[in-house]
Design a protein around this nucleic acid. Sequence first.
DNA 1: CGAATAGTGTCTATCAGACAGTATTCA
DNA 2: TGAATACTGTCTGATAGACACTATTCG
Lengths: 237, 237
Amino acid sequence: MAVTRPALSRPSPFAVTVDIVLLAVTERLEVMLVRRGVEPFRDLLALPGGFVQPNESIDDAARRELAEKTGLTPTQLPGVHIEQLGTFGDVDRDPRMRVVSVAYLALSRFRPVPTAGTGAVEAVWIPVDEACRGTLAFDHVEILTAGLERARSKLEYTTLATSLVAPTFTLGELRQVYEVVWQESLDIANFRRKVLATQGFVVATNEKRISESGGAPATVYRAGTGKDLLPPIMRVR
Amino acid sequence: MAVTRPALSRPSPFAVTVDIVLLAVTERLEVMLVRRGVEPFRDLLALPGGFVQPNESIDDAARRELAEKTGLTPTQLPGVHIEQLGTFGDVDRDPRMRVVSVAYLALSRFRPVPTAGTGAVEAVWIPVDEACRGTLAFDHVEILTAGLERARSKLEYTTLATSLVAPTFTLGELRQVYEVVWQESLDIANFRRKVLATQGFVVATNEKRISESGGAPATVYRAGTGKDLLPPIMRVR
DNA sequence: CGAATAGTGTCTATCAGACAGTATTCA
DNA sequence: TGAATACTGTCTGATAGACACTATTCG
């Protein structure tokens, strides 16, 4: 008796989009959102995103959308960290048609201000906790929440924070990245000890720098070559 | 002057598949692969997977494929952990057409043996390291590598291991899960101390059980309700 | 008995949290 | 001078690795 096999199913056509959770880590933690001009969810805020084109990889589509929506030039783009976050494909997440969205997390140390003429869409920057509590188009609150949690946990076990400060930085600036993203304050002395004890995290320079708000001159550091933090810097829970 | 906007792009049709990295954690760590009967990559081994249907979510498609390819009944399925791993969408990953694949990681404490008549496809179980070194269809080596790393790191910071033993188990059995997945041996006494010190990881029963290979009777435990391991059990690197 | 496993206890080095105290700069 | 920041140092409790030792069971 022949083994029964499921009928070979044929591919169904799907629309594939990328959606970007772009977080700016400055004195606050903010997310970039765009106001929708068309149905569905017209006038609601949404994550920036768009359709993947037939001739580009999904990663390329994410980088292209990021550039288009922020007005960042290809030269500035490498300074922005971007990674895949997850894929959202519920049947009814878009009322128009079946859309599968691949979400990306992008992190920037400043808020790119789209300027007219660069092709960028009008965007707004909203504090993340406000955006999480508010109403966004589609399932974008869920995606934003996932992005926020990913950003927070990546600070724990990678050297990601060094890409969210200027090329040279003080430990106070590095600590502020953790405090802004985790929304908790860290002990100055213990943070210093931990960072300096971790091989490959930061490298001291000869330079000193004085903060705008007074205080003693701080040693200036560069990012080290390490990518992982072993053991991790854990937030309190 | 009107602000220049990018032309509103229209959706292009994509085929969307799910691919499953199904790992069985027994005395060995093995991955389920299927032999391809059609081009492209005919006769090569590949991860089990298939097209997402128009009326099912991507998560549902992954569970359906898992059930179809393993012959597991809906009753057995809840015992198998499954989670989204990542999405692979390079332009040329499938020579036939543009295919975006959403990969899932599934973990089982036994090797489901597909039986004829259940609709299951013929599958083989291969030790993971052998499969990683070998040649697989499409970009499946990359997907498998990502799945393996995900499984290893999830044991560190979640209670996932308790879903890879029987409903009641000894600490020796739990430790074996770690040793098989991490491929390193752990100190018996230190493992015990760590597991018992972690709230919500395991709950002792009154029962004792004697191992097949002799030794003193071991206390039998059930899984606790906790999901996270804080602080994590870290493997050596 | 010997091998294998379960379980207890101990020593030590390391590390994180808490916090005191000093130094340097700006307003 | 006072506020703010940088930096050093110390105490303590928790924890992980290493490992010795005992107990129980099978063959």
